[in-house]
Design a protein around this nucleic acid. Sequence first.
DNA 1: GTTTGTCTGTCCGCTTCCGTACAGATGACA
DNA 2: TGTCATCTGTACGGAAGCGGACAGACAAAC
Lengths: 240, 240
Amino acid sequence: MLESHSPNKNSNNRSLAGDSKANKILRAVPQAEFDRIDSKLHPVALKYGKTVYLPEQEIEHVYFVTEGVVSLLASLEAGATVEAGVIGSEGIVGFPVVLGANSTPHQALVQGAGTAMKMPANELKVEFKRGGMLHDLILQYTNKLFIQVAQTAACNRVHKVEERLARWLLLMHDRTQGDEFTLTQEFISRMLGVRRAGVSVAASGLRKERLIDYRRGVVTILNRKGLEGAACECYRTAKK
Amino acid sequence: MLESHSPNKNSNNRSLAGDSKANKILRAVPQAEFDRIDSKLHPVALKYGKTVYLPEQEIEHVYFVTEGVVSLLASLEAGATVEAGVIGSEGIVGFPVVLGANSTPHQALVQGAGTAMKMPANELKVEFKRGGMLHDLILQYTNKLFIQVAQTAACNRVHKVEERLARWLLLMHDRTQGDEFTLTQEFISRMLGVRRAGVSVAASGLRKERLIDYRRGVVTILNRKGLEGAACECYRTAKK
DNA sequence: GTTTGTCTGTCCGCTTCCGTACAGATGACA
DNA sequence: TGTCATCTGTACGGAAGCGGACAGACAAAC
């Protein structure tokens, strides 16, 4: 599902090889621990719109994101989806395996193209069980994500679409290089759990205020500070 | 904040002493591990409406719930609150401490009176670090709660108040003995993140269908199966 | 028994968002 | 250059829930 970059096939791919340290968890792991897992890590590309894992499907690999963004989506009957949380280079896709689960009810979807270090779930479990720094860092990250998801639960209940869109764009921006990203309204609507037309209206609002620009699947952040003002408190709360 | 029952002061309180095994996590811990922590556990009463811990306040004790229900609330500016998840005898209040956090942005509020085994956070951290069964059980529970919170995020976005009320009552019912519980509409409205009047209307709906009865702060479940039908899919999804 | 504070049912106009639909704009590709 | 699939803007009636308000019902306290 995700493209593997095995070193022998593609040994000159410098942009993907050896950037483990672009992931904040891997970067914080002491060298001794890192050396133990280094050989188990393989770079892969995260392609926009690709699914990393499906609901109830066994999680065979975890992904330390080094660039780009992956969404966790809760799916409802009738095919609707709502984003529960986003994972960038600060995190790891597939963390439930270390919590003792083989699968989750969520879909992990690449929402901003990038790269990740892929690792077999079993290997991670072994290292996790040693109880070193990696163990602690992953749990700390789990806690952060938990807080993000809880905030989203509240946000989804009480805030307006335009505010939530602004917040969501900021979450993306924080996890992406550059001010432009590829995103159709249809795609965003599945994240926010609203109609596509609702996204159109909300985006028009932000555009009128010159906070973003928007054309056929490409969003550009024009005024980051202003966007923070347009976002609901949830974004500011989460920053702390 | 919570009433302590120290054995010397209150040695004849049989209903609170020694029911550690009413908590599903403690019950599943092997005897050898349990013996190590037994002396650190002290029974306390969970009183309706009391706060177990406040946002950003240091978590000094954790609570293995043996009876009753505790809510995790996300608070928003302007004083609004929305429930992110509920914890009953299957769980532990204060789990963030083992994830490496000293506090959380959430409030833990007793929503159904009951009892818990209280334990100093530091003692739990020590036992957790040993990496035994308690370690694994707490992480499994964390995963379950994560899933519950993510489901709530989606639910809050798309489902109607009456459906969500039904779901919420079922979550309560699952974690309580008996079919009656003390709950004002004002209280419920803070959990669901809606107006008090909205709860009134939704509850009338359920009452008309003879699923619940309702009078001045006391809700009675009349037809459990019917209530499951009235609840949104989220309840059924979460059961799996 | 009366008072008082709390809890509940209901109402109003208003805002937000939904479901649906359709036309125009854009960019890729032949 | 023209064609075509895709993406976007907008419109409409309707549903749901809001903020605010008020009166009645109830239970506990005096």
